[in-house]
Design a protein around this nucleic acid. Structure first.
Lengths: 342, 342
DNA sequence: GACAAAAGCGACAGCGTTGTCATGCTGCTG
DNA sequence: CAGCAGCATGACAACGCTGTCGCTTTTGTC
């Protein structure tokens, strides 16, 4: 019930309220002695500036909003996605005296756009961070931009206009491919994802770059199509295992397909990782729940969200590199060094 | 960039700002004609009251804070718990023009209490909802209560002083145990959760009561410890399956551990549910994604959080029954009648 | 040591609401 | 029809802070 106001502090420090304001906001032109006196008074009284009064006077809200797809209908993976983004963004906000508003939006709901507009009009955040997959839906983006609020998009994919933060999918795919090569694998297959998913193209080119970097040749027979589903991973694996010279490692463009590969391998009696190494992409929570737990690529979600918060609050544009956060390879049980031929 | 203020509305409706204020806040003593005129002006101008100004004038924050255990690391899929609570509470808040502040607190961090106090002093929420397992940590509770903020605890377990909302974990656990017994199982194991999580104690006693109610004896060897993680579920299962007389059913105190049990069973070549029935607790989304889909106890998390929001904002005390939201047994594929011995 | 420039500080007016109180009007009572 | 309660409304002062501007000092310069 802290009823201590700036006036109380001013009286105790024997200065005007304006000087207290200067000290609190770190403004210049305050003599050291005076500053210390004021700071002591603040400490003594345990004074906390009233955020509402400050907002009213400065015409700012000191608020950032995070809008993400409502994981209600969505499955478990997006829970982890959401929570990590929240925490990353929250850290950035708290470090700067900002508060965070969360706004789950179900894009299947016809009122989703209206709700977003309503939230922005009501709370007036200084910026909005828009998480994938909402970040590449034109109507959602338009709704936010129309409100005049600064917008940072997360992993917006191909149509990356405006400000955004993302990971370099190509680089990550290259790193994973190189990792597999470093385990001794020379026949490394790649399962492509759904053509519409723009990151998929990047992952493929990263795979190719990884092969090159490891001095391996590209065998077109080792690149097969999938559509991001578990079933398509099963099919792809069946196709690959039927090859005359089957691969000893398979890198799937997402975790679901990798899970499908695991299933097929199990059905074919192929042991993972002893006979076949399997790697995925995304680190959905399924990845650690299946057996064997999946070696995969993890997006540094907290770092991404933190960066987005910085961009909004510190109002920095940032070079392109600053906004591309490198991904991380998570080695679990589904990959192993290539067994020597006897 | 809505710079429309109450003054603009007043001018357009040809009334004083005070009358606009009356209409906006649904106060009495406004002639119908005047009210309509004002409402039309509000619509025409798309006027939104400035929350900061309102807060300043009313000395209220229109804020509710949700404090929960930081599901640190990507490993803990307890984030489904968090996300559901957030959404339930958010619904309650938004319906009443309140905003929600989220505050993940890592109780292993020595500054956790300090951070909570700081958040409350800074944002001055009108109430705090404290999620389990934080809700039964005396120092956390004390910190919040010392701030003078209204506190609603979620599933506070044994030490339920003050206001709280919970499900009857003991009753639910008893029901699940009885259900397993009704399938013919006579050796039903129980995997305990993290000792600090007090609901765990209730679930254990519910398990015991369920055994009693079904006329089964308690075998101490069938009660093993876990720490709520998948890994601990794996370990627990390994321990149970190695028993001379292994159980035919295992009831885990949460779904993560149940998932771990499933993994170990698969690794041991034990078929679920034919050779082993497995039941969990919580109904996290993982429960229905894994194979076999998990029979479990569902806590109505959103309803619980919504209720907590109501209690804070509407300032209702509520009878005890109002604040105990019944849980539900969800039967899926991981449990089956005990196979007859041949 | 004179003078300009800059530093240090305070008075006061907002910021957009709500609360308080005064005022005029309406309708009812006797 | 006087008298009065109560309804409808408005004027104006908070609420706690920052921005602007002006007044004193201090500092720097030759």
């Amino acid at each position: 019930m802290s009823k201590i106001t700036i006036t109380d502090v001013a009286r105790r420090a024997n200065v005007s309220i304006k000087t207290v304001s200067r000290v609190v906001n770190g403004e210049p032109n305050v003599r050291d002695g005076t500053r210390e006196r004021v700071q002591q008074a603040i400490l003594d009284l345990d004074y906390r500036p009233n955020p509402s009064a400050r907002s009213l006077a400065t015409q700012r809200s000191y608020l950032v909003a995070l809008i993400y797809d409502d994981p209600d209908a969505y499955e478990a993976p997006s829970c982890g996605y959401v929570v990590n983004l929240q925490q990353g963004l929250l850290s950035a906000c708290n470090a700067r005296g900002f508060d965070l508003l969360i706004h789950p939006a179900n894009y299947r709901d016809s009122k989703a756009l209206e709700n977003i507009a309503k939230m922005i009009a009501h709370a007036r955040p200084e910026g909005v961070v828009l998480a994938a997959p909402l970040s590449n839906m034109p109507d959602v983006v338009a709704t936010i931009e129309d409100s005049g609020t600064r917008l940072i998009r997360l992993s917006p994919g191909a149509c990356a206009t405006g400000q955004f933060v993302e990971t370099d999918d190509a680089e990550a795919a290259q790193a994973m491919t190189s990792y597999l090569a470093s385990l001794g694998h020379r026949r490394i297959a790649f399962v492509r994802g759904h053509a519409k998913h723009s990151a998929v193209q990047l992952r493929l080119s990263g795979y190719k770059a990884g092969l090159r970097a490891s001095g391996l040749n590209l065998d077109p027979a080792l690149i097969v199509d999938g559509d991001n589903s578990i079933a398509s991973g099963e099919d792809a694996a069946a196709q690959l295992l039927a090859l005359e010279q089957p691969p000893t490692a398979v890198f799937a463009a997402n975790d679901d397909m990798a899970a499908g590969i695991l299933r097929t391998a199990s059905r074919f009696g192929v042991n993972v990782p002893d006979q076949l190494s399997v790697a995925g992409f995304d680190d959905i929570s399924l990845a650690q729940q299946i057996y064997p737990a999946l070696t995969t690529v993890r997006q540094p979600l907290r770092a991404i969200a933190y960066r987005a918060g910085e961009m909004i609050i510190d109002d920095v544009q940032g070079t392109h590199e600053d906004n591309v956060i490198p991904a991380e390879i998570v080695v679990r049980e589904s990959t192993a060094p290539l067994a020597r031929k006897h």
